[in-house]
Simulated assay, not measured.
Amino acid sequence: METTGFTENQMTVREAVATLCAKFPNSYWQEHDQNEQDPKEFHAALAKDGWLGIALPEELGGSGLGISEATMMMQTIAESGAGMAGAQSIHANVYATQPLAKFGSREQREGTIPKIISGEWRTCFGVTEPDTGLDTLRLRTLARKSADGQSYSVTGQKIWITCAQVARKMMLLARTTSLEEVRKPSEGLSLFCIDLDRTSSSSYSPGLDMRKIKKMGGRAVDANEVFFDNYQIPADTLVGTENQGFKIILHGLNAERCLLAGEALGLGYAAVARAARYTCERVVFGRAIGANQGVAHPLADAYMRLEAAKHATYHAARLFDQSQSTTSTTNIRQDAVGVAANSAKYLAAEAAFAACERAVLTHGGMGTPPSTTSSGGCASAWCRGSRLCRRR
């Protein structure tokens, strides 16, 4: 990646996080993916060095930096070889806490955020539902307030909730006024910071159930269906004002989109770099395959797409930070942040997909993962000892 134009803080983050990630080689991530094992050591290492609080207030134990620096952190993690497993193991702790830091009560902020920063607690984002997908305004999980106003009863279902098995807290978006009773769909939503109570390691409190989703890839981090059946939560878990949850959650969703765009960039740059190295090493008909335009040009095109998406991504992150700043003289509208963040996520994802696809094609028959023996070593004689081997 061309790094001209980044701030000193961003480059410091990139260097320091890359140094930490180097302690977790590709073999670590392959083993955790194959064994469906949470990368808790990686999460702990980032927490120990304070990275989980990169974009959270200093008075709560954070670094007081912005989503611009957090996006650089997530890009560096994905680019290191940790990929989406490394990113997903920690990114909700960065973006899901943004609404809590801005709109939460003093008790919520001081009682929750420092424990997330320290790594004692992990959090997850409870938004997506089976029948709504990206149509957040149509979600139907309902939180009914009790007659005495002391609690809410939550009924509904969430899906594709990452790290729910290891999370202590969930940022839950639910309806406090049903869809049929509101004037427009953006009304009637509320945000809660709730406990995912467990009576043991394998069972949950009454009214709460989780079912792990079996995945073909990305298995180092868990994905879940979460079921609520009159699950009781205290009234003081409400974040901000009741029925204003959609406006509040945008501070988390826009941050999420910036971070995910950075993660996509990391995947894309890593793929192009590996493919480019291989084109110099693979010799056919007496010369390296990278000397052929049919190989070199698609990779160059992929790199330029990543560079363009990079500018969109960090533009969105800057707008987000400026919109949150109390000292900025520029008034940044939230809808402008939303347009930039959505655009960045889409462009970066498209660029990363193209880069990864072309990297696989560049490797030809070696573009597929090598088969493994029962002992865990590579079965391919070519793969053993190669610098491209993911087990090195």
Rank of each mutant, 00 (worst) to 15 (best):
G207V: 05
V239A: 11
R219V: 05
V166A: 03
D229S: 12
I159E: 14
F227M: 00
T177P: 06
V226A: 02
P206M: 10
G207Y: 03
K214S: 12
D197N: 04
S205Q: 10
L191N: 11
R175P: 06
R168V: 09
L238F: 10
P185D: 07
R183F: 06
D197S: 07
K212H: 05
S202F: 05
L173M: 15
L189M: 15
L173H: 09
G218R: 09
F228W: 09
G217L: 14
V182L: 11
D197V: 07
D236Y: 15
E242Y: 08
N224A: 09
L196T: 01
Y231T: 12
G207I: 04
N243A: 13
N243Q: 13
V239P: 10
L208P: 01
R175W: 11
S203F: 00
I194S: 00
Y204C: 07
D195S: 08
F192C: 03
F192A: 04
D222E: 08
E187D: 13
G240P: 10
R175F: 11
D209S: 09
N224I: 01
G188H: 13
W160P: 00
S202P: 00
L208Y: 00
M210S: 00
P206D: 07
Q165P: 03
E180G: 08
K212V: 14
D195P: 04
K215D: 11
N243W: 06
G188R: 13
V226H: 05
A235R: 13
S202M: 02
K214Q: 11
D229L: 07
M210P: 01
I213G: 10
Y204M: 07
Q232H: 09
D229H: 06
K158E: 10
F246D: 14
R198F: 02
Q165I: 04
S178R: 12
R211G: 00
D195L: 05
I161S: 13
Y204G: 05
L238N: 12
V239G: 11
V239E: 09
M171D: 03
Q165T: 13
R219I: 04
P234E: 09
N243L: 08
M216C: 06
M170E: 02
V221I: 11
F228I: 14
E242F: 11
I213M: 15
N230Y: 04
R198I: 03
M171K: 04
C163T: 03
S205T: 13
S200F: 01
T177F: 06
K215I: 05
G188C: 12
A235E: 15
K169E: 07
T162E: 10
D222W: 01
K158R: 14
K214M: 07
C193N: 14
S190Y: 12
T241C: 09
